[in-house]
């Protein structure tokens, strides 16, 4: 009886169900078709051949190294900010929160221009660095700075949420058992927040790897020095389309890997709790 009623009710919802299925199908096709078009244009032989191309190799190695360094830098300064903002109340907390979140909504081109105005040849800070013989703009350091600037909120936001989710009572228990604040942090808080911390770090790495706007403004497009993968895709588009496509496919693969890592981490955390 209940099953029959279920079927009747479901039949009544049929138009709605068709509408939802159509919308979902369209959304999947909208994202799927361009990706498929890209992958179909790059047969494995072409991908392997492109890996011999110095433009592709330089861009790939530069991107991996700079995104890796940027992620480490973001974890280094982002972790204390995330923890303090998750745990403490202090004057100006909202301002710090807003400033650290700002790069998410700031157009990357604006970020690049701002970095140039600050650390460029005649920039606010750059003019003094110039006197000391330190040049930042249009160097590999500028690539890293641009990546750190745009990618840091992805880590800080995620880590802050994860730290806030760790009950203080565990930290209190550790303190009463003789652990100082730092040992408590590393032996209790970090392990309990590790899933979020890792997800944030992976997202930051992916965002740094895909950085384009701020990098081209602040670091330029010099092969082997500042030309990361997205810049090489853009550069090669005018000449060597194959290199451009190969790099794009590599980035698609990395993006897939990032999503899978994050999904696995999240599922693991849900299973644990």
């Amino acid at each position: 009886m209940t099953q029959t009623m279920d079927r009747i009710c479901r039949r009544g919802n049929l138009p709605l169900r068709i509408l939802i299925a159509t919308l979902v199908g369209l959304a999947v096709l909208f994202i799927g078709i361009p990706l498929a078009a890209l992958l179909l244009r790059v047969p494995p032989a072409l991908l392997l051949a492109s890996l011999q191309d110095p433009v592709v190799l330089d861009a790939l190695s530069l991107s991996l190294v700079t995104a890796g360094i940027s992620t480490i830098i973001v974890i280094g300064f982002g972790t204390p900010i995330a923890y303090i903002n998750a745990r403490c109340q202090y004057p100006g907390k909202k301002i710090i929160d807003t400033i650290t979140d700002l790069p998410v909504v700031l157009p990357p081109a604006v970020a690049g221009l701002a970095l140039l105005m600050a650390f460029g040849h005649r920039g606010l800070v750059g003019q003094y660095l110039d006197l000391l013989g330190i040049e930042i703009a249009f160097t590999t350091i500028a690539v890293i700075m641009a990546q750190v600037f745009v990618a840091s909120p992805f880590y800080i936001r995620q880590a802050r949420t994860s730290f806030a989710g760790v009950s203080r009572v565990y930290e209190h228990a550790a303190r009463t058992l003789g652990a100082g604040p730092l040992r408590t942090f590393f032996s209790i808080t970090v392990p309990l927040a590790i899933t979020g911390i890792l997800s944030g770090a992976v997202m930051t790495f992916a965002r740094a790897l895909g950085e384009f706007g701020a990098t081209i403004m602040f670091a330029g497009n010099l092969q082997g020095k500042t030309q990361t993968m997205p810049l090489a895709i853009y550069g090669a588009l005018q000449g060597d389309m194959d290199a451009s496509l190969a790099l794009a496919v590599i980035l698609v693969v990395i993006s897939f890997a990032v999503i899978i890592v994050i999904k696995t981490l999240t599922e693991k955390e849900e299973a644990d709790t």
């Binding site: 209190h172 228990a173 009463t176 058992l177 003789g178």
Partner: peptide, 11 residues
């Protein structure tokens, strides 16, 4: 400080 007091706390 908390960690130097030597208390055993059952929460």
């Amino acid at each position: 400080p908390v960690e130097l007091r030597g208390t055993g706390y059952v929460f």
